[in-house]
Simulated scan of single mutants.
Amino acid sequence: MPSGKSWTLYLCVGRLIWATGGHHVVRRLYRHLSKQCPNLSLDMMVLREQSGFDYGWDYQVINILVLRKKIAKEQAKEIISQILFEILFDIVQYEARGSLSYQEECSDLAQSAMGILTLLSIKPILRKLSQMWMAWQKAKLGYLLLQAAPQLQNLDRLKQVTSPQAYDRLEKIANGKRTFRDIANLLKQDEVTVVRSLSGLIRKGFIRLISLADFPHPGLLPTHQFTSGLTMARQRPLVACVDDSYQICWEMEQIVQKAGYEFLAIQDSVRALGLLIDRKPDLIFMDLTMPIVSGYELCAQIRRVSALQTIEIVILTGNTIESLRGRLLGVSDCLSKPIQKEKIVGILHKYLAVSPAPTRNPIKHRSRQRATVQV
């Protein structure tokens, strides 16, 4: 993993109240918000306020959601505790490697800036941290980092030594799109169990670990329409993208909206059919390899719904065999990954017609940091 990352810990009267920073600030907040409040969408993480970032952008998002009554105060405290635990575990890992430096800074922040922050009971967090660290060391996982993303390799050999069911499961979770923490959250398992289950394949060379960039900062983007279930009158054709990768959805949104179309991103394949029936898009881009409900299954479900039978479906895949199988399910076109702007625009022009819409200026924010722990 890249060096140069830092964490900021906030203490009040000697008690820890908040922490931020690290490798995946946006990804981490989105994961914990989704866990506590599955009905929240990413557009709720876009902030238009230009002040009040004394504790960082991510804390401000939590505080604003409480003020808007989108989440309860108790849920917010649980999210804060989970984020603190995650950051402290990362710090412990890097400390064990002897690669940390510390810097202290005293700040006199206004009481009004604290929002929902309270003096947390650190003992339960430290007790849980100690238990996980002992389990981590016992499983001999010290060389791995939870922010790494597992990706399958040596596929032909792997197919020979695993059952078809096990291979399909591995292909869905170890696809290089999710970190170990994301996978644990998806499977509703603890991180030690997940990493331990994959560590053998990592040692044998069937899984490599890659670094993922953080999600694009929602505070710097136009308001998203992610997983919105509201039926709205629209003047322009609606393009949907069903893909469990936030990065792919974000890239698709930039291309589609600049081309003048409305956009709907759906990352949860379980909820996808209901959202598609509700919104009735004019064109659907779909990933085939998704957990729980695959793109193949979803294509078959769509074609059984009379209101969706005539909608054009374009599958996104990096595999020729997948493309052929998709054709048998009634898809209109296939595009290879990684996605290319010119090809996406070509598909839009092929199946839809609309005048380009004006682009919007990004929203800019500023944040201020305090004490840091740096790698």
Rank of each mutant, 00 (worst) to 15 (best):
G4Q: 09
K5F: 01
S6G: 12
S6E: 11
Y10D: 10
Y10E: 04
L11M: 09
C12M: 12
V13N: 12
V13T: 09
A19V: 03
H32S: 14
K35S: 10
P38E: 10
P38Y: 06
D43F: 05
S51N: 06
F53W: 07
Y59Q: 11
K69W: 09
I71H: 00
Q75T: 05
I87K: 00
V92M: 13
R97S: 02
L100C: 03
E104D: 12
S107W: 11
D108P: 06
A110D: 04
Q111G: 04
L117Y: 02
T118W: 04
L119Q: 08
I122S: 10
R127T: 06
L129K: 12
L129Y: 04
L146S: 00
Q151E: 14
D156A: 15
V161N: 14
V161T: 14
S197P: 03
I202T: 00
R203A: 14
L209V: 03
D214K: 10
P222A: 05
H224I: 00
H224D: 07
T231G: 08
C241F: 01
D243M: 08
D243W: 02
D244N: 15
C249W: 01
E251D: 08
I255F: 05
K258N: 05
G260F: 01
A265E: 02
A272R: 06
A272Y: 03
L288A: 07
C299H: 02
R304V: 06
A307N: 13
L308N: 03
I311T: 10
G326W: 00
L328S: 10
S355N: 12
A357Q: 04
A357N: 04
P358E: 14
N361W: 03
R366Y: 07
A371K: 07
